[in-house]
Amino acid sequence: MGQKAQSPRKRASFALIPAFVLAVTALAGGLSAAEAAKRGPVTNLPLPRFVSLKSSEGNARRGPSLSHRIDWVYTRRALPLEVVAEFGHWRRVRDHDGAGGWLHYSLLSGVRTVMVESEMASLRSRPDTASEVVARAERGVVARLGECNPDWCRVAADGQRGWVEKSALWGVGREEIRE
């Protein structure tokens, strides 16, 4: 159960091995070293990346294990979160307020959701400010993310679907394009 503490020197050398292996593997696969550094050492998925909370409750811990203190309890299923680091079965996440911690990977889903950040967002029939408003969403509404172009994303929430300006949303990269 108890583990013997490693010297800082050993810990640092072990931390360099996955980064080195990832960089060598990526370079062999045609990626630049900068692109390789943006990949998670466990999943090889991009970092940072957006995911959502799979369950209706998730404990965000101070560190990547059950023995670490719980800092936050997320209680909103489908809440969009940003994965910023990986360690074993744990993912360091942050929410729209910048708060976060380490969550077990089983609590996260690859289903993409976004949160409305503006006071009121108009869902439009087309990705154009001149198109018809089909619904409105208040700040804090969580919606399922569909396709995105450079300025607009198609979302669905509470039976309503429409296009929202990307600048009104949290949970999608500003340069991200989705088909």
Rank of each mutant, 00 (worst) to 15 (best):
D151M: 10
H89D: 15
V21F: 08
P150N: 04
E138K: 10
L47Q: 07
V21D: 10
V114T: 05
R76W: 01
N59R: 12
P127M: 08
S167W: 08
D95Q: 06
S131P: 03
P46A: 08
P46V: 07
W90K: 02
Q6N: 14
R91T: 03
A168Y: 03
D151E: 12
D158H: 13
L145C: 05
S109T: 09
L107Q: 10
T75R: 12
E82N: 03
R39F: 00
D97N: 14
S32H: 04
S131K: 03
E119N: 06
A33S: 09
K166T: 02
T25E: 15
V133S: 07
L81C: 02
Y74R: 07
L27A: 14
V42T: 13
R77V: 09
T43D: 06
I177Y: 02
L53D: 05
T25N: 15
H68A: 14
A78D: 15
D71T: 10
L22I: 07
V84S: 04
R91M: 08
D97K: 12
G159A: 03
S118L: 02
D95P: 02
W90G: 00
S106C: 05
A5K: 15
S122M: 08
G173M: 06
N59V: 06
R39A: 02
R136S: 12
D128G: 11
